Simulated assay, not measured.
Amino acid sequence: MLNVTIYSKKDCHLCDIAKETLLKIQQELPFSLNEIDIEKDKAAFEKYKYLIPVIEIDGEKVFNYRVNEYEMKNILRLKSQPR
């Protein structure tokens, strides 16, 4: 199963929208979702403070600011195919 991580913080409108999109996609395409609050993780804060929300799949950054639902589904499908 693919691991999707969203780097976000509270009171972030774009983060809320991105999380809603990911939860919607998760209903169709299974993946584990991990949320990291950058305000509680100093390294993540330094790395992503001006880019949130940041979405990673298995450690690879695929989106920041906004999540395109269509593109995210395609990426998940491609990454979940056997190699």
Rank of each mutant, 00 (worst) to 15 (best):
T5G: 07
L33P: 00
K9E: 13
P82F: 07
P53H: 09
D11V: 03
P82R: 09
L22C: 06
K42M: 14
I38Q: 09
Q27E: 15
D16G: 08
V67H: 06
E20C: 12
D11F: 12
I52N: 05
I6C: 00
K9Y: 04
C12Q: 09
L29D: 12
Q27S: 13
P30R: 01
I6N: 02
K61T: 11
E60A: 02
L22G: 04
L51A: 15
F63K: 10
H13D: 11
A44W: 00
R77Y: 15
M1K: 06
C12Y: 04
M72R: 06
I6E: 09
E60P: 02
L22H: 14
K61P: 02
N68P: 05
V67N: 02
L33C: 14
I75Q: 03
I55G: 09
K73D: 00
L22W: 07
K47R: 12
V54R: 05
P82V: 11
I17N: 14
S32L: 02
S8N: 00
E46N: 15
A43F: 14
F45Y: 12
A18L: 05
N3H: 06
N3D: 10
C12K: 04
Y7D: 12
E60W: 01
S8Y: 06
A44C: 11
G59L: 12
L22F: 10
V54D: 10
I55S: 07
I17M: 13
A44E: 08
E60K: 04
C15G: 01
D58F: 07
K10E: 13
L78K: 15
I38A: 02
K42T: 08
R77A: 02
D16F: 04
K24Y: 06
L51G: 01
E20D: 14
L29G: 01
E69P: 08
L51H: 13
N34R: 11
K61L: 10
M1V: 05
S8M: 08
K40W: 01
I55F: 02
Y7C: 15
Q81F: 10
I55L: 09
D37S: 13
K10C: 03
E39P: 01
C12T: 05
T21K: 15
K9M: 11
V4N: 00
P82E: 14
Y50Q: 14
Q26D: 03
Y50C: 05
L23V: 04
E28S: 02
L33A: 11
D37M: 04
Y48Q: 13
L51D: 12
K19I: 15
S80N: 08
I57V: 15
P30F: 06
K10D: 15
V54S: 09
T21L: 15
F63D: 07
Q26C: 00
T21E: 10
C15K: 07
K19D: 15
K10N: 14
E71Q: 12
L29S: 04
I75C: 00
K73S: 02
K49E: 05
K49L: 12
K42Y: 02
F45V: 05
A44H: 03
T21I: 10
V54Q: 03
D58Y: 01
P82I: 13
E20R: 09
R83Y: 14
E35D: 03
K73M: 10
E20F: 08
